[in-house]
Design a protein around this nucleic acid. Structure first.
Lengths: 135, 135
DNA sequence: GCGCCAATGTTGGCTTGGCCAACAGTACAT
DNA sequence: ATGTACTGTTGGCCAAGCCAACATTGGCGC
């Protein structure tokens, strides 16, 4: 079996499990990525969040819309730079993120279920080396 | 870093390398998958090839068209079952597949470059366990 | 001040992949 | 004979990722 195919297969397995978990909360992976980035970096503009999450700023519009409609974050114009919107997680959004964190953590555990703790550490080490920038 | 995200990242790295290699020959991954399946299983109907490669039979039509136009395979009606087309690799197709095999093998090597031979074996073992069917 | 360039949010569109429905033609079991 | 299942094909839908264009705004040099 080709290593690249095996890696793809494993990624698809992980995605299936994680997506199913997130679907229980009615969100997609990019919603989770955005909320997580907001918690990690604090309030930021849509463009900055896009850079951090790898989401195109044109796609970011709809994602922020989704979460704002559910009152999980707020979009407010930046008084210091009227081009920007400042995106802030609401208290409800923080609680929701905690819930998502739990769902995702359980999903990771399900994904890695066939491996021992030592195997898991080793896998993460190997994968990390594969994705590190090359020269 | 979440294991699922790490696995996805590694898969994207692999895909980037493999796709770039295949693009040198002007084919996509599914073209290679089809040719490889044909070599492995011998001539078969489009539906059977679709089942083996995971390609939908409606998408298979265009893929066979692509490769038939380049004379890498032949599409002939099955005299024993007039519903079926029998797909056969041409001699030119076999030579081309050999070339692709070489490109893909080099791509695997590039993908795994950061790992020692022992690490590679271990990685494949771990990934294999992750994709094996669960109960 | 003016002029120019860059950044931002937004809309719209394009492409790729994967999936499904429908259909006509064919095989096959009952 | 009749119904059921399979095949190839066309057509369409949807999700993701990407890019172009645009108006607005900021910041720079001069």
């Amino acid at each position: 079996m080709l290593p690249s195919r095996l890696t793809n297969h494993a990624a698809m397995t992980a995605n299936r499990i994680v997506d199913r978990a997130l679907a229980q909360a009615g969100v997609r992976r990019y919603h989770y990525a955005l909320l997580a980035a907001l918690e990690e970096y604090g309030p930021a503009s849509q463009a900055a969040l896009g850079r951090r999450t790898g989401i195109d700023r044109s796609d970011m519009v709809a994602i922020v819309n989704d979460l704002a409609e559910r009152h999980l974050l707020e979009r407010a114009p930046d008084p210091d730079d009227r081009r920007r919107n400042i995106i802030t997680v609401t208290a409800e959004g923080l609680g929701f993120l905690t819930h998502l964190d739990r769902l995702v953590a359980d999903a990771q555990d399900e994904f890695l279920a066939p491996l021992s703790a030592a195997d898991r550490r080793h896998l993460l080490d190997l994968l990390t080396r594969l994705v590190e920038p090359r020269d």
